Amino acid sequence: MRKAPATFRMLAPLIAVGVLLVGCGQNQTPLEPVPTRSAAPGPAQTSAAEKPLRSAPSPTALNLPVGSLYKNPANNRNELVLADVRHTAVLIGDSQAMPKDSWPQQGIAALGYKLHVVGMGGTGFVATNGKTGNYIDALQRGDWVLPYGEPPLIVVEGGGNDATQRATDAQITSNAERLLAALTKRYPGSKLAMIGTLARGASNGGARRTEVDALVGRIAAKHGIPFVSVGDWLTRYNAVGDLQDGVHLKPSGHAKLGAVLAHELTALGLTARPDSEAATPAQ
């Protein structure tokens, strides 16, 4: 086999390198850095964004004025800035809870909490009043505004209007499950509690109201949520005479059952904690 001329042997490596460089460079465009930015949450991001606000700054850190609405980027919903969310209990309820100094409000306030109350008469887990939706739908639509931060206690009361509007057990259970899931996701550090349906009791004409009270109790038990059954309180605590219309209480009845509720909630260990142990807004 003839040997290649010396000159060619010296130039061959250089020729090979040139061919390699030319081949690798074909059809290549310089890579430009891609700028990064945070996309504003939109409807398509809602489910992914509704994660617990473990890293959300406090209202104080954001310099938000008390009473203002803050559009929470984690769920794209307006939330209310409270003066002291660390010591505020949230009450979601119907007409039993709405009057100022109602028995649910008195019972919770007696435990040492301030109150933020949302809800409306004629509503419930399923029931609507024509002005707003049921509990979960009204909250998701923004009809009722929850607080920014993380309150130490959230209490859900109701079921009477579900009984009146003949909601089925399956409907009540489904919507209650949706409500509890939404509250747990949004406020993972808050305690939840439930209060049932005020009635006379099974043996005293409580009928469907007492049945709904028991159903709400089973839902609470399934989730390990403290529950106060009130399905026979009107007769057990001699409050029938304190009714003003067969369903709603006079001030005397609110005071009577408010004291009972405070006792029951205390027995469940739901009293407000000292300031040093109180729940704080997510940091």
Rank of each mutant, 00 (worst) to 15 (best):
L198D: 00
A182P: 02
L261C: 00
P33K: 11
L139H: 00
V19M: 15
R178F: 03
P57T: 11
A202I: 05
N129I: 15
I92P: 08
S174K: 14
E157S: 08
L53Y: 12
G217I: 04
A44P: 00
V126K: 05
L91Q: 11
T280A: 06
N204F: 12
F227W: 07
P274K: 07
A16T: 09
G142Y: 06
I136D: 08
Y187S: 14
A214K: 04
T197L: 00
P30V: 09
G196T: 03
K256F: 03
A4P: 12
V156N: 04
D137M: 06
Q96N: 12
Y187C: 07
Q28M: 14
P147R: 04
S252I: 09
G158R: 00
T128P: 10
R77T: 04
A207T: 09
G224E: 09
L268K: 13
G231S: 02
L183M: 08
L243F: 01
L234W: 01
P147K: 11
P73K: 10
H116P: 08
H116L: 10
P65G: 06
T168M: 04
G25D: 08
A193Y: 03
S38V: 05
Q244C: 09
S252L: 04
D143T: 14
G107Y: 11
T210R: 02
E79G: 09
A109N: 08
D232Y: 01
K256W: 05
T123V: 04
D84I: 00
M194I: 05
